[in-house]
Amino acid sequence: GSKLPPGWEKRMSRSSGRVYYFNHITNASQWERPSG
């Protein structure tokens, strides 16, 4: 298991139950796992 880039964390969408990734530094969110 590799770590996520700085700022990123795994989140669960309440509406759909899907996992997404959220960056608390930039407030960005995306479905794809961030690389870096």
Results as ranks from 00 to 15, higher is better:
1 G>I: 11
1 G>R: 07
1 G>V: 11
1 G>M: 10
1 G>D: 13
1 G>Q: 12
1 G>H: 12
1 G>N: 11
1 G>E: 14
2 S>N: 13
2 S>L: 11
2 S>M: 11
2 S>H: 10
2 S>K: 10
2 S>T: 12
2 S>G: 12
2 S>W: 12
3 K>F: 11
3 K>Y: 11
3 K>R: 12
3 K>P: 14
3 K>T: 13
3 K>W: 12
3 K>H: 11
4 L>V: 03
4 L>I: 04
4 L>E: 05
4 L>A: 02
4 L>W: 04
4 L>C: 01
4 L>K: 08
4 L>Q: 02
4 L>Y: 04
4 L>F: 03
4 L>M: 08
5 P>W: 03
5 P>Q: 03
5 P>K: 02
5 P>G: 06
5 P>S: 04
5 P>M: 03
5 P>R: 03
5 P>V: 02
6 P>Q: 08
6 P>M: 08
6 P>A: 09
6 P>S: 08
6 P>I: 09
6 P>R: 07
6 P>K: 07
6 P>E: 10
6 P>Y: 13
6 P>L: 09
6 P>W: 10
7 G>K: 02
7 G>D: 05
7 G>I: 03
7 G>L: 02
7 G>A: 05
7 G>W: 06
7 G>Q: 05
7 G>S: 04
7 G>N: 07
7 G>V: 03
7 G>C: 04
7 G>H: 09
7 G>T: 02
8 W>Y: 02
8 W>P: 01
8 W>F: 01
8 W>T: 00
8 W>N: 00
8 W>H: 01
8 W>M: 01
8 W>R: 00
8 W>L: 01
9 E>F: 04
9 E>M: 06
9 E>S: 08
9 E>W: 04
9 E>Y: 05
9 E>A: 05
9 E>I: 09
9 E>G: 05
9 E>P: 00
9 E>L: 06
9 E>V: 12
9 E>K: 06
9 E>T: 08
9 E>R: 06
10 K>T: 09
10 K>V: 12
10 K>L: 13
10 K>H: 05
10 K>F: 06
10 K>E: 14
10 K>R: 13
10 K>G: 04
10 K>I: 14
10 K>P: 06
11 R>G: 03
11 R>Q: 04
11 R>Y: 07
11 R>K: 08
11 R>E: 03
12 M>C: 15
12 M>V: 15
12 M>K: 14
12 M>E: 09
12 M>Q: 11
12 M>N: 09
12 M>G: 04
12 M>Y: 15
13 S>K: 07
13 S>N: 09
13 S>A: 11
13 S>I: 13
13 S>V: 12
13 S>E: 14
13 S>Y: 10
13 S>H: 15
13 S>F: 10
13 S>Q: 13
13 S>P: 02
13 S>R: 04
14 R>A: 15
14 R>Y: 12
14 R>Q: 14
14 R>F: 13
14 R>H: 15
14 R>S: 15
15 S>Q: 11
15 S>H: 15
15 S>D: 14
15 S>K: 15
15 S>M: 08
15 S>F: 13
15 S>V: 14
16 S>V: 06
16 S>L: 08
16 S>P: 06
16 S>F: 08
16 S>R: 07
16 S>Q: 10
16 S>I: 05
16 S>M: 06
16 S>N: 12
16 S>E: 10
16 S>H: 11
16 S>W: 08
17 G>F: 05
17 G>V: 04
17 G>W: 03
17 G>R: 07
17 G>N: 09
17 G>L: 05
17 G>I: 02
17 G>T: 05
17 G>P: 03
17 G>K: 10
17 G>Y: 05
18 R>Y: 05
18 R>N: 05
18 R>E: 07
18 R>P: 01
18 R>H: 06
18 R>T: 06
18 R>Q: 07
18 R>K: 10
19 V>E: 09
19 V>A: 08
19 V>Q: 06
19 V>N: 04
19 V>T: 09
19 V>Y: 10
19 V>I: 13
19 V>L: 07
19 V>C: 10
20 Y>G: 02
20 Y>T: 00
20 Y>H: 03
20 Y>D: 01
20 Y>E: 03
20 Y>I: 02
20 Y>N: 00
20 Y>K: 02
20 Y>P: 01
20 Y>L: 02
20 Y>F: 09
20 Y>V: 02
20 Y>A: 00
21 Y>Q: 00
21 Y>G: 00
21 Y>P: 00
21 Y>W: 07
21 Y>S: 00
21 Y>H: 00
21 Y>I: 00
21 Y>L: 00
22 F>Q: 02
22 F>V: 05
22 F>M: 02
22 F>I: 06
22 F>P: 01
22 F>E: 01
22 F>A: 01
22 F>K: 03
22 F>W: 08
23 N>R: 01
23 N>F: 03
23 N>I: 03
23 N>L: 02
23 N>D: 03
23 N>H: 04
23 N>Q: 02
23 N>Y: 04
23 N>G: 00
23 N>P: 00
23 N>S: 05
24 H>M: 10
24 H>T: 15
24 H>L: 13
24 H>F: 13
24 H>Y: 14
24 H>W: 14
24 H>S: 10
24 H>N: 11
25 I>S: 06
25 I>V: 11
25 I>N: 08
25 I>Q: 09
25 I>G: 06
25 I>E: 09
25 I>L: 10
25 I>K: 07
25 I>Y: 12
26 T>Q: 05
26 T>D: 03
26 T>R: 03
26 T>F: 05
26 T>H: 04
26 T>M: 04
26 T>A: 04
26 T>W: 05
26 T>S: 08
26 T>L: 06
26 T>N: 05
27 N>K: 15
27 N>S: 09
27 N>E: 07
27 N>F: 09
27 N>A: 08
27 N>G: 15
28 A>H: 14
28 A>R: 14
28 A>K: 15
28 A>Q: 15
28 A>E: 13
28 A>G: 06
28 A>V: 15
28 A>I: 14
28 A>Y: 10
28 A>W: 12
29 S>D: 02
29 S>T: 14
29 S>W: 15
29 S>R: 14
29 S>G: 05
29 S>N: 05
29 S>H: 11
29 S>M: 15
29 S>I: 15
29 S>E: 07
30 Q>W: 04
30 Q>L: 04
30 Q>T: 07
30 Q>D: 02
30 Q>E: 02
30 Q>F: 04
31 W>L: 08
31 W>D: 06
31 W>G: 03
31 W>S: 06
31 W>K: 06
31 W>Q: 05
31 W>E: 06
32 E>G: 08
32 E>S: 13
32 E>A: 10
32 E>T: 09
32 E>F: 09
32 E>V: 07
32 E>R: 08
32 E>K: 09
32 E>H: 12
32 E>W: 10
33 R>P: 12
33 R>A: 10
33 R>D: 08
33 R>N: 09
33 R>G: 03
33 R>T: 10
33 R>Q: 08
33 R>F: 14
34 P>V: 01
34 P>H: 01
34 P>Y: 00
34 P>C: 00
34 P>D: 01
34 P>W: 03
34 P>R: 00
34 P>F: 01
34 P>S: 01
34 P>I: 01
34 P>N: 01
34 P>A: 02
35 S>V: 13
35 S>T: 13
35 S>Y: 11
35 S>G: 14
36 G>Y: 13
36 G>F: 14
36 G>A: 13
36 G>P: 11
36 G>I: 13
36 G>V: 12
36 G>Q: 12
36 G>H: 12
36 G>T: 12
36 G>S: 13
